[in-house]
Design a protein around this nucleic acid. Structure first.
Lengths: 267, 267
DNA sequence: CCTGGGTTCGAACGGCGTTCGTGAATGCGA
DNA sequence: TCGCATTCACGAACGCCGTTCGAACCCAGG
């Protein structure tokens, strides 16, 4: 009824150039089944499930409808199967999250360390991380919901370490900075995801709309009782000033300047 | 069968001295029913449900068994009632989280700002916040799962603002620091809670055991493939050095020094 | 052609947050 | 003191969730 299927190895399609080494997983086995044309009504032979396909679909679903829309059940439905099927390829929900954020973190581009521009480079990496979380809505939630232990996550640490050490930061300070930086960036991403989810429960895949979020925050601050919070009231322009971007730039500045300042203390 | 009950107003038992103003909630109405002695077998008249009692129980449950052990159902069972009853006093799970972390944040003690010691004072507040999260396991999880908008949370901001401004930090930098600082501290608390939960699923209310957590982290770093992560391997002593406390002190140093460094830039 | 190991997946388990509707308790005006 | 309107308590149910069980199925090696 169907031509016989072929089985062959194929490089990881995620990040083609990065093929030198397979630390995490073996080569991906993809099974392609060519259906005899025009046999349309007969239920097509389902494409084989693979961890790849599962992670792909999870990311697509998360990008489209947010983290909470990705459950083992909804994911299975998107793959046109039952929830139990997923467990053959993914240990549990936790591991799925790990795989997703690992795949995302792999996109991080670590610049060639330049001692003269280490501070700008470090900020760039932070911005990149923030952007990755933004480009994959929901991923920050997944990142916070787990302890970072996989390859993609480690690349970020390796990169930060490289830049800092090149910049003359003491190894101890640089090492702890990896922690601090990635924790901060994921927290920002997580918080943004929360706001985005709350304010609208974004129905039709519209992007998070950071402006509306900021506006809502301003409104909240402005109705504080002045007797209880004199300073918050007095400085409410400053407290509500700037959007997420401005605040992030400020934080990046603080982190980098602070690192430079305390580096020697932790030599 | 029972003597008639009396009804009277009572000050909020949470924080007796702070009575000057009731912004959030009205006076608490407590109804005390004295059962006729020795009528023991008859089911005692259940104490009335109040938001207070619910929050108290939620905090106790969280402290004993962690955030995940607190569900509307388990909470109801602990209060010897059904889940539906809670909704008479608490809008939903989100609001419960808000109430809990608000109650906790209220314990924060803001020092009288001293311009000469603003940096130490700021670090103290950060430490205090961290300790509050630690003293109430699971609360950091609740804090991250919501957008901070309530009284207790605002007190932290007010305090940080006061210290910074007294220390000569520009209002704009101080304002954004409130954001940055509380985001960082809750992220730390959240991560600690995750580790604690993962490694053992702490059965019998034993405290989180930060040492074991740190040990597990060291083990993880030490099995990285050196070819892929040369720097992480080379500097693994630094990367795994120090416990949660050391890292927190480092972060506090970075934040405070960084704030001082960039303050003028954001005037 | 058989057989056995891996894959698929419907069904079910126990838990979740939340809502509905009933019935009891309560406080108030008469 | 007595109705009565209102508030409160709460069992039951709805529709989710992550995960497991076990039967059916596919297919490579004998």
């Amino acid at each position: 009824m169907f031509v016989s299927s072929t089985l062959f190895d194929m490089p990881d399609p995620t990040n083609p150039p990065e093929r030198e080494r397979t630390w995490q997983a073996g080569p991906v086995r993809v099974r392609v089944t060519l259906p005899k044309a025009r046999r349309g009504d007969r239920p097509e032979p389902k494409e084989r499930l693979t961890t790849e396909r599962i992670v792909d679909t999870a990311m697509a679903l998360m990008a489209e409808k947010g983290y909470d829309a990705v459950s083992m059940r909804s994911l299975a439905k998107a793959l046109d199967t039952g929830p139990a099927s997923l467990y053959q390829h993914v240990a549990n929900r936790d591991e799925l999250d790990q795989l997703v954020i690992d795949r995302i973190a792999r996109r991080l581009e670590i610049p060639e360390p330049d001692p003269d521009r280490w501070d700008e480079q470090l900020k760039d990496v932070l911005r990149q991380m923030r952007d990755l979380f933004r480009d994959h809505p929901g991923s920050a939630r997944a990142a916070m919901a787990q302890i970072p232990t996989m390859e993609g996550t480690m690349r970020a640490a390796e990169g930060i370490m490289a830049i800092c050490v090149a910049g003359g930061i003491s190894p101890q300070a640089a090492a702890w900075m990896c922690d601090l930086a990635s924790l901060y960036v994921s927290a920002v991403g997580y918080e943004e995801a929360l706001w985005a989810q709350r304010q609208n429960s974004t129905p039709a895949g519209e992007e998070p709309d950071h402006e509306a979020i900021d506006a809502e925050m301003v409104a909240l601050w402005n109705q504080l009782p002045p007797e209880l919070f004199p300073l918050l009231t007095r400085y409410s322009p400053e407290l509500t000033a700037g959007d997420g971007h401005d605040r992030f730039e400020f934080a990046a500045d603080v982190l980098v300047a602070g690192l430079a300042a305390v580096s020697e203390k932790y030599r």
